[in-house]
Simulated assay, not measured.
Amino acid sequence: MKFIDLHCDTLMKTAEANKSISLLENNTTSVDFKRMKKGGSLAQFFAVFLPTEEMFIENVGEIMDDDIYINTLVNTLKREIGENSSMIALAYNYEDILRNEKNGRMSAILTIEDGRSVQGSLDKLKHYYDMGIRLMSLTWNFENCFGYPNSDDKEIMGKGMKKFGKEAVEYMNDLGMIVDVSHISDGGFYDVAKISKKPFVASHSNAREISPHKRNLTDHMIKTLAEKGGVAGINFAPHFLQPDTTTDRSTVELMVRHLNHMKNVGGEDVVALGSDFDGIRGELEVDSIHKMPMIFDALEKDGWSIGQIEKLAYKNTLRVIRESM
């Protein structure tokens, strides 16, 4: 079964101090090109996650300017792809993915997680688009020029998009850059739903009805996302899967439970994959990209048809790409 994964943080690992990581093959990350191919990957969304100052110091060894950091990680992926061009190629739209597949290549799609570096400038958004960025997670865990994050603080959670954020969503629609609402406040989610003329995504978010973490989606959000033609990518992180958000174990059984709930609430066209590989910790049953078929096998045993599994695995996300990029 081929598949598309909407989110991994693997590029972050390539910037860690005193490490040399090959994206072709390594023993450090959950994602590399050889394991992608072994698992059946059609396309992988590679995120440039913007660390906090503390994370920069701890992992990179120094604080870097956001744009220098973005350029570094983008160039790393482009270099690694160039060195393995018979296996994988960058994709900037739906046609590129189909062309790469026809030529026996997987696709890599660039994203940014946390739009803070945009700094309220539509010109910066266009600059990132021209670099090859095709999806942006509007916020991470802090307020930025777009709006506010998910939070246990009800006041923050209820806040919507800022004026620039609303303008930016419209502009991203025009550019062909997918809007990602994972990490955003509930108020921000509903603003995006009102404004966006194209399908948007929650690239790595689960069902709040099962796991009450505020990063997850309420049933009403899942329905709204489905009505807008978007998808939610199942996140493999234990604290987004477990009913007890302090528990540190991620299982296929829990993924199946979330996916059944999301499918029952929003329909079979809303479910997708968003592993969050290399951005999550814990005891992971699916701890590598090549193990993705374990989920498909479990869903088939649970009664999902092959057609429904194909929608989850790649068809739903491919439709969003076709309509949004």
Rank of each mutant, 00 (worst) to 15 (best):
M1E: 08
C8S: 09
D9Y: 05
T10S: 08
M12H: 11
E16D: 00
N18D: 13
L24W: 12
L24Q: 10
L24P: 05
N26R: 12
N26E: 12
N26C: 13
S30T: 09
F33T: 05
R35W: 04
K38M: 07
G39F: 04
Q44W: 01
F45G: 05
F49P: 00
P51F: 02
T52V: 08
M55Q: 15
M55P: 00
E58L: 13
E62Y: 13
I70M: 06
L73K: 12
N75L: 06
A89L: 00
A89K: 08
D96E: 04
R99N: 13
E101K: 14
N103Q: 09
A108V: 02
E113I: 05
D114Q: 07
G115Y: 07
S117E: 03
Q119C: 09
G120T: 04
D123K: 07
K126I: 00
Y129G: 06
Y129K: 11
R134L: 10
R134Q: 12
M136Q: 10
W140Y: 14
N144K: 11
Y148W: 13
D152F: 09
D152N: 15
D153I: 10
I156G: 05
I156K: 07
M161P: 04
K166W: 03
A168E: 09
V169S: 12
E170M: 12
Y171F: 15
N173L: 11
H183F: 10
S185P: 12
G187C: 07
V192W: 01
V192R: 08
P199N: 12
F200W: 08
V201C: 10
A202L: 10
N206G: 11
N206C: 07
N206M: 07
N206S: 11
I210Y: 13
H213N: 15
N216R: 03
T218N: 06
T224A: 14
L225S: 07
E227M: 13
K228P: 12
G230V: 06
V231R: 02
F240G: 00
L241A: 05
D244S: 07
T246Y: 09
E253Y: 11
L254P: 01
M262W: 01
N264L: 03
G266R: 06
G267V: 04
D269V: 04
V271A: 13
L273E: 02
G274F: 00
G279R: 05
I280C: 11
I289F: 06
P293W: 05
M294C: 02
L299D: 01
L299C: 03
S305Y: 05
S305V: 01
Q308E: 14
Y314H: 15
T317F: 14
L318E: 13
L318Y: 12
V320G: 12
R322Q: 15
